[in-house]
Amino acid sequence: MHEPSGLIENLFVFVLASFLGLELIRGVSRLLHTPLMSLTNAIASIAIVGSLLMTGRPHESQLITVLGAVAIVCSTINAVGGFLITERILKMFKKRSE
């Protein structure tokens, strides 16, 4: 049992990013809450980073590669779908004068 490398740095990053997130999201107009949600949905597919590493590296068990590949499929659906739908939604928002 040893202290994992970079734990305290990671905690710093986590806490600072959370406060930053709170500030940023508070600034989002209520009008945009649906596209905000589909955008953050797409951002949550950042799990793809972990999935890629899991799938790509050599393992003793093929099962791990398969689990990773399924995770890539799920994350890609989210990423591609999330950004496309956000774009579709945002395109619809028009001002009276336009």
Binding site: V13, F14, A17, S18, L20, G21, L22, L24, I25, L36, M37, T40, N41, I43, A44, I46
Partner: peptide
Amino acid sequence: AGALDGTS
């Protein structure tokens, strides 16, 4: 990215 999503 996870923290941004979580706080949102």
